[in-house]
Design a binder for these strands. Structure first.
Lengths: 179, 179
DNA sequence: CAAATTGTTGACTAATCGGTCAAAATACAG
DNA sequence: CTGTATTTTGACCGATTAGTCAACAATTTG
């Protein structure tokens, strides 16, 4: 008797409606908890409570605590970087920087959890995104540093080290969000 | 038969040589671990390992994990505040601020653990020093804010909100230490 | 509706962690 | 050296936590 092997699930199948909703709910809850209590300070039970579901149910969507953290990181990283992406070398320098800072401040105010989450990650040496920071983020920062340098060389902006400028903006917007 | 009660130990007796050494070793180890992994992320075993002693031995010197944290806080706070204390209203404003920032940067570079420790505490809403922050630190910051305001009113310094200035300096020096 | 798949959970386990304790080892005073 | 106070530790305990599992419920599909 021939047995027809019918695969139950292909890798990379599209998520169901329920999966999409619940993953979102979990990530929101997890971001809130991780940003407040850190990785070790947050329990899966706490996240499950906040997401209004049982722990086994949560673990049905994310097999391990590390996976939840990684997913939160990935989901938040894009948003955190978006303001910097928008810095346009063809714009007017002071106006571009003003818009960048405004966007950063807005983001810190509107999504304080995301902001705290990253501050925390970076403060502790970015242990979970070290590889990423060394590649993608560095590339982006290098690219935008080039824009600043270009403006300085064209004498459209007072001389300043681009890295110092970014640090100044990141640090200050973050602190305003904290307090 | 009269029993002579001979107290074994008076409160506030001077610590023995061994106590002095071991408390120091423990505080160094604890600062390193707490600043890297946070309060919840650090285990007593880890601190004991770093201090090269057994856990019960460590707990002989500090009865609870909270006590270790509090002791680290107390031991480090003074150092963290010292640069601000030195801000002198009778000095030349720009030179005073330059010196303050330089000292802050030196401290962040020389004692990164202490610096991270406080950044971490403040980022999470200073849960362990809330009372202190509300009194002593606030008083100090208010006092030094008065110095800044005085300089501004005498037109010896460009107009700036003193709190914003301190945040700017703290945030930036900390970020330099992190990266 | 009926079968199959997906979603949900109570009950459990193994490991970790903060903290205790009694007993052994060491340092120290007379 | 002798006795006493101090220091050190292995073994242990109760609580918490990450993660499992088998059974049950809901949803989707045909």
């Amino acid at each position: 008797m021939a047995v027809v092997v019918k695969p139950k699930k292909e890798a990379g199948e599209k998520p169901t409606r329920i999966q999409e909703i619940n993953r979102g709910v979990i990530l929101d809850a997890a971001l809130e908890m991780f940003s407040t209590y850190g990785f070790r300070g947050t329990t899966i039970d706490q996240i499950a409570d906040k997401a209004a579901m049982s722990k086994p149910n949560l673990l049905y969507y994310f097999k391990r605590k590390d996976d939840i953290y990684a997913a939160v990181l990935e989901a938040t990283l894009d948003e955190w970087l978006r303001p910097l992406h928008a810095l346009d070398q063809d714009g007017e320098p002071v106006e571009e920087l003003r818009r960048y800072i405004t966007r950063k401040l807005e983001m810190s105010a509107k999504k304080p959890a995301a902001s705290r989450f990253f501050a925390n990650e970076i403060l502790h040496g970015a242990p979970h995104i070290h590889g990423f920071l060394k590649t993608d983020l560095k590339k982006l920062v290098d690219e935008k540093s080039g824009v600043i340098r270009k403006w300085v060389s064209e004498e459209r902006l007072a001389p300043i080290d681009p890295y110092h400028l970014f640090f100044l903006i990141w640090a200050t917007t973050q602190h305003y969000a904290d307090f």
